[in-house]
Amino acid sequence: MTDIATYNFAYLDEQTKRMIRRAILKGIAIPGYQVPFASREMPMPYGWGTGGVQVTASIIGPDDVLKVIDQGADDTTNAVSIRAFFKKVAKVAVTTETAKASIIQTRHRVPEHPLTAGQVLVYQVPIPEPLRFLEPRETETRKMHALEEYGLMHVKLYEDIARHGRIATTYAYPVKVEGRYVMDPSPTPKFDNPKMHRSPALQLFGAGREKRIYAVPPFTDVVSLDFEDHPFEVQTFDQPCALCAAENVYLDEVILDDHGGHMFVCSDTDHCEKRRADGHRGHLAPETHLASEKMEPAQ
């Protein structure tokens, strides 16, 4: 492609971007409130991040540096495609390094590297309504948000404890934003909930199919719901990352063979690579980068 003029800058037309920016501003003004917006058809199916892509397209400028992650990884189909998309339609610089990015579009993770002021985290959201599976009527859930009737949310947590002896919700764990609106933090693992609390970065949430945008401005309280005698806690792992030996990070289980061999590695690939480049070695890390075929399965 010789010229960007084939598409409007960042794919969406200016009127659409204006409309979405308006929704974003309203979302920022009312933290956690779901703002309806006129979601557009995007050149990808619903469920692949159409909401996140529209938010990113509306805020991105030529000087931005974009990072896209999918379940923490920079190198999976969704992440690679969206990154390539914006490279093509906005000609922006892209990166996989968290610290260098000005906009990070994410599917279901908050990067391990602490975010800083000025960065924007854009979440792809499948179902923005935290009360949806408890109360199917949209008219009713809107009223419950309006009147701050959130007893039902605790009914769900009560059910968890009654059935499993503890709060078994591990992702899409409901939070209360700035003491007012209960919000679905998108299906991020609850491990990431504390990172959203008083984060210096701006957090924007886009749900394309459900046509909702909501936001958490920088330094906003994001508190996970819980019971006094069953307080909120994050997942813990009994072993460090098999490749970079990182502790207190979110790990993915990777199956190595069909004999039950598996390992736990960082879900955030950028974080893992950085640590390995700095000389950290996990117990399954290859001797050199080329010796990966020597990997032994864990017991």
Partner: peptide, 15 residues
């Protein structure tokens, strides 16, 4: 949970 819902709705937070 059916019995407890009203209690939680008025702010009871002790399971």
């Amino acid at each position: 949970a059916n019995v407890g819902e009203r209690l939680m709705a008025v702010g009871d937070r002790h399971y």
